[in-house]
Amino acid sequence: MNKLILGRYLPGDSIIYRLDPRGKFLITFYFIGIVFLANNVASYGFLLLFVLFAVYISKINLGFFIKGLRPMLWLILFTVLLQLFFTPSENPLWHWGIFTLSTDGMRIAAYIFIRFVLIIFISTLLTLTTTPIEISDSIESILKPLKVIKFPVTQVALMLSIALRFVPLLIDETTKIMDAQRARGVDFGEGGIMQRIKSFVPILIPLFVSSFSIAYDLAIAMESRGYKDGEGRSKYRVLSWSKRDYMALVVMLLITIILLFIRSY
């Protein structure tokens, strides 16, 4: 259960931690966008250097980022192999049936691989250094302009933060129920596929029952403390945009310019 590094916050302190979550959130998506501008060895190398530098100043062990690749491993392998063997080419090194191996294919496969690494590292950097609640706060803040078209921003943000709050709760609950059923002789991951699917019924039913009851309790608790629609509520966690956040934006701008330069070079 704890293996999902993607989407897990790691307590710590460094300049990356101190950046405003809104800025980090936008920069992450912006960066994922400009990754697709890279088109040659130099530009991919430049972006890779930048990401490694960001990892370095975050003061988080590189191992955590490499672990972040693991859940995506099959997708990465599949895509890379697809590029490697199915890139059409004028002068293939090797050819068999529908498979073609060429230097072009290898190059593209390597690019795809680096692209995956870049995207996963940068988003892992966001989730490792930003608490889920900060992320939901920044989504609320970013969506605010949509209020003009009557989009229920505060409700959506509330739903989001409740959903995020439920994740660790449900993981705990699942672990607890699995332990209880294991103690009653259930072996998870044993036997044929039907057997395995069946062994999840004793987890899913109690999990549904308890999540409904937790949700019900939460609603009662919120009502009894007088929660009303978010309109005009003040904030407990106030996000503050500071000089270093402007700096981060400037850095992103510079990177874009350099990238465009290398790209056409």
Binding site: A180, G185, D187, P202
Partner: peptide, 24 residues
């Protein structure tokens, strides 16, 4: 390893905190 734990778990029964959440 996780295999062959059934004889052990048969002999060691465990009533968890709030065990009613295990009913299904």
């Amino acid at each position: 390893n996780n295999k062959n734990l059934k004889p052990l778990r048969k002999n060691v029964g465990m009533v968890f905190q709030f065990p009613e959440s295990q009913l299904f």
